[in-house]
Simulated scan of single mutants.
Amino acid sequence: MAWSSPLMWAQFVSIGLMALALGLDALSLGLGLGMKGIRKLDILKVSAVTALFHVLMPLAGMWMGGYISVLLGKVATMCGGLLLLLLGGHMIYSSLHPGEERSYDHRSFVGLLLFSLSVSIDAFSVGVSLGMFAGDVLLTVGMFGAAGGLMSVIGLLLGRHVGEWIGEYGEMLGGVILMAFGLKFLL
């Protein structure tokens, strides 16, 4: 299909808007994580893994899209919401009990995977829906990955600066943000 085709531009704009919407979760949750305090190198790692998950999750969803789209879309969203509630609750608990175990460590392999999975689980649901329609898969996952990674960087950097300003309450506020998104996914 030629780029001069109105159909191609419509597909490009539609995918771009979906990528932006999915990336906003990464921005918001990155803001919450950034308020905990995060090094610049960790911002790059978290954002790169988030971008990777924003490619892999919709790709996996597209492959499964023809089979069980309605069921998996709701289950994936609920799992993402529960995961965010747990992560947010743990961050709040850790901020109220500073001498005890800290919240999940975004620098650890498991913490990095949990964060990236939580911000990209909805991309799986979108991928399931998109899997039923013929479209440009590379364009779709490329735009999803770019938006997820870029929005993650922006959120983490903003959160880092806001976290310095807020001080010790940054982790608690980040936990509240994660829990609010978890409730949004569940309701």
Rank of each mutant, 00 (worst) to 15 (best):
S152V: 03
L178I: 05
P6Q: 02
S118N: 03
H97P: 06
M18A: 11
M35F: 14
G73H: 07
E168P: 15
R107H: 06
G167I: 01
F124I: 03
L186M: 14
F133R: 09
M8R: 15
G61W: 03
G159L: 03
F109G: 07
A48W: 05
F181M: 14
V75C: 06
L29V: 09
G37H: 01
M18C: 05
M91N: 04
L83A: 04
L96S: 08
E100K: 15
L113T: 02
V49L: 14
L7G: 13
G66S: 14
S116W: 01
A134T: 00
L183K: 04
H106W: 02
D105P: 12
Y93R: 15
F185G: 08
L59W: 11
G89E: 02
F181D: 02
Y104N: 09
L158N: 12
L84C: 04
L156H: 10
L41R: 14
V55L: 12
R39K: 13
V176N: 01
R160Q: 04
K40V: 04
Y93A: 12
I166Q: 11
G163Y: 04
L117N: 09
L52S: 08
A134Y: 00
T77I: 05
F144P: 14
F12C: 08
R39G: 14
L84E: 05
M132Y: 00
L150V: 14
S108T: 06
E171N: 13
G155N: 07
V141L: 00
W63V: 01
L130Q: 13
L156E: 14
V141R: 07
M172T: 11
L114T: 03
L117I: 10
L113C: 10
S95E: 09
L114H: 05
G155Y: 03
D42S: 15
I43Q: 12
H90S: 14
R107D: 02
L183C: 09
G81Q: 00
P58F: 08
S69C: 10
V141F: 10
A19H: 08
S103W: 01
Y67W: 13
G66D: 07
L84N: 02
G142F: 05
S116A: 15
V176F: 08
G155Q: 03
M143R: 12
A19K: 12
M62K: 11
T77V: 08
V162G: 08
L96N: 08
V176C: 11
V110F: 02
L59P: 09
K45V: 08
F115T: 13
I166V: 15
K40Q: 12
V162F: 13
F53S: 11
A146S: 13
D105Y: 04
V176S: 10
G135P: 12
W3Q: 04
V141Q: 02
G16S: 13
